[in-house]
Amino acid sequence: MTAIVTEGLSKTYKSLGKAPVHSLSDLNLTVEENEVFGFLGRNGAGKTTTIKLLTGLIHPTAGRAALFGTDIITPDARRMVGYMPEQPYFYEYLTPRETIEFYARLRGLTAEEREREWEQISALLDLRDIANRRIRGFSKGMRQRVGFAVALVGDPPLLILDEPMSGLDPLGRRMIRELILQMRDRGKTIFFSSHVLSDVEEICARVGILVSGKLAACDRISALVGDVAKSVEICARGLDSAFIANLGGQVISHEERKEGGHRLVVQDTEAANQLVVEINRAGGTLLSLHPVQESLEDFFTRIQEGAQVALPEEKQPAALAAAEE
């Protein structure tokens, strides 16, 4: 089943005496069940706006969206979602246990279910030691744990996490990363926004990239970074300076390796083959040869600089209709 479908979802903020701000324009997106989907974009690109629309915090100016086939404007859609905002804020005077109890009550859980929920969630997020301490004195990492715990209350099939790794130390980031993967293994769908591209690359199946409120790219990471021309890196030793000087425009870049030898980057595999022959002919030794693929960060930077990538064909209206059926 499709977890998230958006069709022409748009949000424009209007305020008196100011020009309208188009925060999100015509977003067409599908996220399949049990998928880990990374939602990327610079600050102000519209990521949080999209998340707020999906969680019912703000209302769309145009378009529609459904979560597991239920329109986002109904409270029933939010039964499917566990949401962790960027920098989760809770009532400071409550303890983690009281906080989980409160949200479990909002989800209509019985006393018995609430007790069971606390037992499971506190064990998973290691909250028992801080169960009865007020949130007021908590560190960022501890708050993030409580935030994740709140998102898990009621065992929703979809987790929407807004910058879950923002401001965390490496251990905190690792914890969140592992939790996301653990949740995926339990069959949940995870939709999360992030600036930490290395984490996204590591845990996401697909990503969507927003540029100025518009979806500029959406596909599997391998498909996105595979679209660009690859270069080839060759490491060799035993080459004299005259050989290097004669390479001229044949190589994209050249540098001497600290551990000895040279690192040469050529345009493509054809140029690499030719260079290998020349290295052998000059009496040099080939140490390594491997293709250099574009990283998600390179792709992200390139797309921000205006290189518009064609969107894969997504049949959104049909998908939405199917989800509603």
């Binding site: 915090l57 409270p75 962790m84 804020y89 949200y103």
Partner: peptide, 14 residues
């Protein structure tokens, strides 16, 4: 203002 509302309104309540 304190954004405590975010997680509350994201629950299935009117």
């Amino acid at each position: 203002d304190k954004k405590t509302l975010y997680t509350i309104l994201a629950q299935p309540l009117h």
